[in-house]
Amino acid sequence: MTPIVDLQNVTRTFSSKKALDSVSLTLQKGAVLGLVGENGSGKTTLIKHVLGLLKPDQGSVRVFGMDPVADPVPVLAQIGYLSEEDILPAWMRVRELQRYMQGFYPTWDQEYADQLVKEFGLDRDAHLLGLSKGQRARAGLMAALAYRPELLLLDEPSSGLDPIVRRDILGAIVRTIAEEGRTVLFSSHLLGEVDRVADRVAMIKNGAIVFCENLDDLKETHLELTLVFAQPRPVPPRFAGAIAAEGGGKEWSVVFKGSTSQAESAAQALDATVAEHRWASLDEIFVAYSRPTGGIE
């Protein structure tokens, strides 16, 4: 089956900075991929390549089996896009936005659009300029969902929004995924959201994919260990599977990739004992991989 999104060895450089470094990523129909990474890591650049707004220097981008640069019309007709940037024209009214969108998308479902407007408490006659940031985000989501796109691209959609708006947005996304089986590429800083929505997580760092795994697998392969050493250590412990460590003296917390038995074996080899272990949270995994050297020198 043709993947919905297929990036192969995509490299893109801006001036001397490599924004994407040989990125390969595949998204099958129905998949929900959470894209995480620090600011400037390349998340938005990657999404813009999927939209065809950027062309790769090397590698290939296929969306629905087509090149989004060469065939933008059929590709964009099947993509719903919502970004943290407020790109909606301020002068439009909500109903004008609906009118505008329905002209482009034959699959536009006016009933569904009206339902979303009602659910989000939007005034159809209100200008977008006069809406609050949260309301504008809701209007943007309405515009991105009402034509039931095959692929949803959400670039930090709830960044800077209050918890109620975030809940609304997330709820609508979750419902879309659950009811319609859409494919979603979802970038966010809010790992709780990713945890709730995504079934796969990819982390991007300095333009390169660090990992791209099933969310459950990811959490089940990463442990948060508390290691107690016989003698105080001036530097963090370094051993196979250790991703990041923090602490000092005799006691160190380590994010470890592997099983419990592997962790215990590794600790024994360092003359330490595993005082405590538990599954690492997505937050801890993200922070561990984000550090320049994982805290391990």
Binding site: W91, R93, Y100, L122, D123, D125, A126, H127
Partner: peptide
């Protein structure tokens, strides 16, 4: 233009479909 916006939602006339 905004100042002429009706205060109650749902009173607008639907625009013809493009």
């Amino acid at each position: 233009r905004r100042s002429r916006t009706p205060s109650k939602p749902g009173l607008s006339k639907d625009l013809p479909k493009l």
